[in-house]
């Protein structure tokens, strides 16, 4: 039997729309990687600096934006100062700035005092390397072109090693680059949030202790939101995610039954 692919897409669409339209939610139980991530961020104290690197394209914002929003809220609620930047991806600047500005307004935080958005700088790996020698040889201005030497950051941070933690939110291999050039070389503790596709690869770094914690895909974001007690996009999407997964499972099962019964004939 052959099912037209258009029917499969239509059923998939319905299976996602119904839970979202009805506001159906499921209980999400946080797993060990997310618990570790939460504990690592919770270990930061008031006034500490956390560097957050955004290394993803807008095409993966569905999975990663909920993480960034939850993370900013978590850091701001603990009065941790954020240095947000995107040195390994030049397309996320405006979106990243919008996200942190929105989160800051909810917690009454001031730009260029409680948080800094530095944007993109060319150089990629050599830029990361130089951040460990002299941070301001890489970044001299913020994303909105404020001179860094006039800001409190200049007094507190000389190199990236002065940050208490580095968190990379990525959709590619950037976490390994940051582990190589920042964690291994300058000893900055690291955690990561990543798309579901990349999560499998990063488990090795989590198990070895090189990553303190990890958020994997929309589920990771939903688990993190659960730990923070926030009802964000991650948690809202989990019911739709579950329905769609059940559908895919059924289709895989049906495909296999069809294949094996065909072989027997």
């Amino acid at each position: 039997m052959k099912i037209k692919r258009q029917y499969i897409y239509a059923v998939l669409f319905i299976s996602v729309v119904i839970p979202l339209a009805t506001g159906l939610t499921f209980k999400v139980r946080p797993g060990p990687p997310v618990k570790k991530f939460y504990s690592a961020v919770n270990g930061l104290n008031e006034g500490d600096y956390a560097a957050v690197t955004l290394s993803y394209d807008p095409s993966t914002k569905a999975e990663l934006n909920p993480m960034v929003i939850a993370l900013c809220g978590h850091l701001f609620s603990r009065d941790v100062k954020i240095i947000m930047m995107n040195p390994l991806n030049n397309s996320i600047g405006n979106l990243g700035y919008e996200l942190i500005t929105r989160a800051a307004s909810l917690y009454g935080k001031k730009e260029n005092d409680d948080y800094y958005f530095l944007g993109y700088v060319p150089g990629e790996k050599s830029a990361l390397q130089n951040m460990g020698e002299d941070f301001y040889s890489v970044y001299s201005k913020t994303f909105m072109k404020a001179e860094l030497k006039d800001l409190p950051l200049y007094r507190d941070i000389k190199t990236i090693a002065d940050a208490k933690m580095l968190i990379d939110i990525s959709d590619g291999n950037s976490t390994v680059d940051l582990l190589t050039y920042v964690n291994t070389k300058y000893g900055v503790p690291m955690a990561a949030g990543t798309t579901a596709i990349m999560a499998g690869e990063y488990y090795t770094y989590l198990n070895s202790g090189q990553l303190l914690g990890m958020l994997g895909g929309l589920r990771g974001a939903a688990e993190y939101e659960t730990m923070l007690g926030v009802n964000g996009k991650g948690r809202r999407g989990m019911a739709a995610q579950t329905f769609a997964h059940i559908l895919v499972l059924l289709l895989v099962l049906a495909g296999n039954i069809e294949y094996f019964s065909g072989r027997r004939k």
């Binding site: 998939l12 669409f13 996602v16 979202l20 095409s59 993966t60 569905a62 999975e63 798309t195 579901a196 596709i197 999560a199 499998g200 994997g216 895909g217 929309l218 589920r219 999407g237 739709a240 995610q241 769609a244 997964h245 895919v248």
Partner: peptide, 11 residues
Amino acid sequence: YTVMSRISLLI
């Protein structure tokens, strides 16, 4: 994980 990623985009 790939299925989860793609469904997330649709969601």
